[in-house]
Simulated scan of single mutants.
Amino acid sequence: MSQTTAATADRDTPADDTTLRVLSASDLAGIDITLADVVDTVENAYRTLAAGQSDNPRKLTVKPTDGHSVSYAMLGRDGSRDVVAIKTSYKHGLDKGRGEQHYYTSLTLYDDTTGLPIAMMDCARIGSLRTPAVSALLARECAAPGARAALVIGTGTQGRLALPFLLTTLPDLDRLMVFGTHSEGIAAVREQLRAHFPERDVEIVADLRAAAADADIIVATAGGHTPAAVEAEWLRPGTLSILVGHGLAPSALHRADRVVATSEAQMKVTGTDMADGDGNLPAVDTEFPPVIAGITAGRRSAKERIFAYNSGLVVTDIALGHRFAQLAVAQGLGTRVPLWR
């Protein structure tokens, strides 16, 4: 399917500059896409960015002084797809339990070849796939040679697909561990793993320190209220620690031998909880796009303890969102809204 197919819509409702295809969460939930397709789409977005063909400005953040909510706005352009988009994200109730929180995120895509809108979509599924795909790519590029054991901390949205994606890029992993505090989340982790890799199972760990000491790769995806906080001294030489949400103590960053970030600028915005006592973050040794492109090394030696910061880049949302829009158009999904009439 060509880049502009998503903008041309179906024959009965041709696209113009006054209508917009809206894709709901239920529309997107019905679209089948393989984990390998997601990984390839995200990887190509990184390669295009590293080649200087895409634009990914620093995200804008708004947060009230009492910290009860946070909002982000991210504008970007994918140069290989000729797509411009803006993503918005709003989370309310950060001072409350998970069940009382509200979270809304959306992505609006425009075709920069025709000048027409492509689609506006709920971005929750995009993020739930994109983020673990990035962690899996980080693991592929930065894990020590022969890595066999992976530990996921957290069983929420990001934790549930972390292991299936890791197995997609590192199929030789033979010990899969998860640390979580919610029984329904642990069950969901096991369900997702078996859905994608029916022959595999996960080991539920209670002793986080012992599990961290055994792990070659740690992916920390827990929420802000987690009791988990893996310290640097728990980690053996060669460990790769990937921070997505929470679950790693600041020492894991500050005492790492090498620091990799998807974006150093975004790490400075969203990673302030990892700052030292003076409010400082260590310098990033390399960003991830040039690692994917083979310009810089993700790992320099087998013994390095590497800390990787996985913050979302809007170009990956754009690429994956556009891929979903293509699939949605092919299936006739979505609702045409005369937004600008």
Score class of each variant (00 low, 15 high):
130 R>T: 08
253 L>G: 01
7 A>N: 03
10 D>Y: 06
233 E>S: 14
269 V>K: 11
272 T>R: 14
179 F>E: 05
293 A>F: 04
205 V>P: 12
313 L>T: 02
32 D>W: 12
153 I>N: 12
308 A>K: 00
279 G>R: 00
333 L>T: 04
286 T>V: 15
131 T>R: 01
159 G>S: 02
196 H>I: 08
36 A>Y: 05
262 T>H: 01
194 R>N: 08
251 S>T: 15
296 T>E: 05
266 Q>P: 08
105 T>L: 09
203 E>Q: 15
194 R>C: 07
286 T>D: 05
121 M>T: 11
251 S>N: 08
331 Q>G: 01
135 S>G: 08
303 K>R: 13
154 G>N: 11
218 I>L: 08
174 D>V: 02
124 A>N: 12
153 I>Y: 09
40 D>C: 05
317 D>H: 07
205 V>S: 13
85 A>G: 07
258 R>C: 04
106 S>H: 13
244 V>G: 07
102 H>Y: 11
105 T>D: 01
255 R>Y: 06
235 L>R: 11
201 D>A: 10
336 R>G: 03
143 A>G: 11
256 A>I: 02
283 A>C: 03
28 L>K: 12
291 V>G: 01
249 A>N: 13
194 R>G: 06
138 L>A: 10
290 P>T: 12
284 V>R: 05
247 G>I: 09
197 F>I: 02
311 S>K: 06
246 H>R: 15
168 T>W: 05
46 Y>G: 07
59 K>N: 10
198 P>D: 09
296 T>S: 15
274 M>T: 00
311 S>P: 00
207 D>G: 03
315 V>S: 03
262 T>G: 00
83 V>A: 08
129 L>K: 06
206 A>T: 14
302 A>T: 15
246 H>K: 10
189 V>D: 06
242 I>T: 03
328 A>T: 02
24 S>W: 12
6 A>S: 10
302 A>F: 14
2 S>F: 11
99 G>S: 10
177 M>W: 07
35 L>T: 11
178 V>K: 09
14 P>V: 11
144 A>H: 09
109 L>W: 01
139 A>K: 06
336 R>T: 12
232 A>P: 12
310 N>Y: 07
75 L>W: 11
148 R>I: 04
102 H>A: 14
5 T>N: 12
283 A>T: 10
102 H>G: 13
179 F>R: 14
13 T>M: 05
322 H>E: 10
42 V>T: 07
234 W>A: 11
302 A>H: 15
133 A>F: 04
103 Y>R: 09
324 F>D: 02
68 H>K: 13
173 L>E: 05
244 V>Y: 05
235 L>G: 09
112 D>K: 10
69 S>N: 09
315 V>Q: 01
166 L>M: 11
130 R>F: 06
43 E>D: 13
131 T>H: 02
337 V>R: 10
163 L>H: 06
126 I>T: 13
270 T>G: 05
323 R>T: 13
320 L>I: 01
24 S>T: 15
157 T>Y: 04
275 A>R: 04
264 E>L: 00
280 N>E: 14
